[in-house]
């Protein structure tokens, strides 16, 4: 049996579901799926301009693995651009680091040592751990 994939650490999942090309009818089977760790790899490398070994450290994976994920997302984006297909974001082997969520106030937040483990706005203890 193949070994389980190590969980990739991501800071935040994308806050939207994907992209659609203009003026093209959706054909079933032509969508491209990008998972959250690939989105995070692209974000760290091309948006925040980190180099690959720094980004790999942040995602808690080795540098070669990071390069593989980054390569794969660039191919997928190129494919979607050239063929005019839809891009969907979906869950992969990833965990979200350190962010907590309060459903009532609709916020994500982090906690520090000096603040307690409760929502900073409504002070309720009913929070969702993203892990």
């Amino acid at each position: 049996m193949a070994r389980n994939k190590k969980d990739r650490l991501i800071q935040m999942a994308p806050h939207f579901c994907g992209f659609s090309p203009q003026g093209v009818q959706s054909k079933p089977g032509s969508e491209v799926s990008i998972n959250f760790e690939e989105y995070e790899a692209l974000n760290l490398c091309d948006y925040e301009l980190l180099n690959q070994s720094e980004a790999a450290k942040l995602m808690n994976i080795s540098r070669p693995t990071f390069t593989r994920i980054y390569e794969s997302v660039r191919r997928k984006i190129a494919k979607a651009f050239i063929e005019g297909s839809y891009i969907n974001f979906e869950d992969g082997n990833s965990t979200v680091s350190d962010w907590l969520k309060c459903d009532k106030c609709q916020i994500n937040f982090t906690v520090t040592d000096s603040t307690g483990n409760f929502c900073p706005i409504c002070k309720s203890q009913v929070i969702i751990d993203n892990k």
């Binding site: 806050h15 925040e48 942040l58 916020i107 994500n108 937040f109 906690v111 520090t112 040592d113 900073p120």
Partner: peptide, 23 residues
């Protein structure tokens, strides 16, 4: 609305709480 990965590290090291509104 969004914090970069380096900013998150700086804020964590200095005990600053971060909040992201979802709407």
């Amino acid at each position: 609305g969004r914090f970069g990965s380096k900013v998150i590290e700086v804020f964590k090291a200095n005990n600053v709480q971060m909040i992201i509104p979802q709407t």
